[in-house]
Design a protein around this nucleic acid. Structure first.
Lengths: 250, 250
DNA sequence: AAGTGGTCTAGACCACTCA
DNA sequence: GAGTGGTCTAGACCACTTA
């Protein structure tokens, strides 16, 4: 029996989560602060362990808290990297406006943690865009400050890039776009499709994502000025690590 | 006692979730199909109710399944709307490439469900961008097929738009941008900052989001050709309802 | 060694949906 | 009315972290 038989009040675990969330969003509890643990919540609110866990699970699934086993549950932080797409007209050129979200713009170096280059048969989706059944695939993981932040998989029509450095781990100065230019196929136009969703388990593993962190999935297709698709790049970004910025004209 | 005392196997609830996820991602279980419920999982795997719930919670939090109370747990669908930003160079003009993600491009009409117009003091963030302490605020909710898909809040420097139709519910033909043009302040350049995160509870409520659905948060700032900021628009999108597309040149 | 979160059992009552 | 998910209790054992 609980002592509140009536009304449409939210369940106990929600009320507790709401209270903690308010303290986080108000700034009373800050980055890395420890939240009251399961035992504390049980004692404070006279509830069972499962109910206390349920309350904490709400915040964890919202990405506001991170559990550290054997230690406690902590307030999560958000310190994103600013990623510029469509930078033809960077804001600095035409306005003095301030960015809305804080982000590290300083050039922290990206490192490639993992790299895999292979010749593969294209999936139906990739084949449909690149108009090619065989593709060279470059899979890599990027990290900043030794924290993984992005997975990227690039596909190239095999018959176009065969024999170039694109098919080898080291693509040389300027990277794959320079090599495409060498081949007479400089990318001139781009399309990015952007989605957000919860990560698959292997993505959580590769990006070391805590529960409650969505990913941003970007598919970028590069075309030559003639409209020939030369690269399809599937990226999966830790949403807590990125702010995407797009600048454009009316 | 369970009968598997050794090894580093994942816990039961994860194994069950993994199995169901595989059946969803493989296409064996499709949009709207019913998953085995709590009772079925308890019987099939000889587990307690809480464990069965935990397995289903994994899929729900991943956005792959939606619980319908009194009915069952169902496979979730993804049929997004394509939202074009940076459309100066639409792909149709320079390429025949196919889109990677399916999306309804056909012009399903947006309706404004809720609308609120008010004169307010700007928050520090908004004031910093718009360089104005007082702002006219337009809050609205957009729906497609009577399903809420987006929340949008636009801010305008009060001293610039005072007396115009921007301060009234009906902004007239062409909307707020036409009115800004009337005022000699046509928006010419835009910056969009894009993030993804889990929704706050009130956003879940207003957008009717099931658990496991992130939101895409966009802040768009509009500038005149002179670099004067004239609008700041904060949007919150149901990530299951949208694919963002940005086209641009090298 | 004490405390923490992670997993699991075995019950219970409720509100809701659907035939 | 039978079945479903939603909430909650009261235990248990484990692996891990911290001191």
């Amino acid at each position: 029996m609980s002592e509140s038989p009536v009304s449409h009040e939210p369940p106990i675990y929600r009320r507790i989560a709401d209270g903690l969330r308010a303290r986080i969003l108000s700034g009373e509890l800050r980055d890395g602060d420890r939240l009251p643990g399961e035992n504390a919540l049980m004692a404070d609110h006279a509830i069972a362990r499962a109910t206390a866990r349920q309350a904490l699970a709400v915040l964890i699934n919202e990405g506001l808290a991170v559990p550290k086993r054997g230690s406690g549950v902590y307030v999560r932080q958000f310190k994103p990297i600013r990623r510029h797409g469509a930078r033809r007209l960077s804001r600095e050129q035409w306005g003095q406006g301030r960015a809305v979200w804080e982000a590290d713009t300083r050039g922290r170096p990206f490192t490639v943690d993992r790299l895999e280059v292979a010749l593969e048969r294209a999936t139906e989706e990739v084949a449909g865009v690149l108009e090619s059944d065989e593709v060279w695939v470059r899979r890599r993981r990027y990290s900043v400050d030794s924290r993984p932040v992005q997975l990227a998989t690039s596909y190239f029509p095999a018959h176009l890039v065969e024999g170039s450095a694109i098919t080898t781990p080291d693509t040389g100065p300027g990277g794959v776009y320079a090599r495409l230019s060498d081949l007479g196929l400089p990318p001139a136009q781009f399309t990015e499709e952007v989605r957000a969703r919860m990560p698959r388990p292997w993505e959580s593993g590769l990006l070391d994502l805590p529960a409650g962190t969505p990913v941003i999935a970007i598919v970028r297709t590069a075309y030559t000025s003639g409209g020939l698709p030369v690269e399809l790049n599937e990226m999966v970004l830790d949403s807590a690590a990125y702010v995407l910025q797009y600048d454009f004209e009316a």
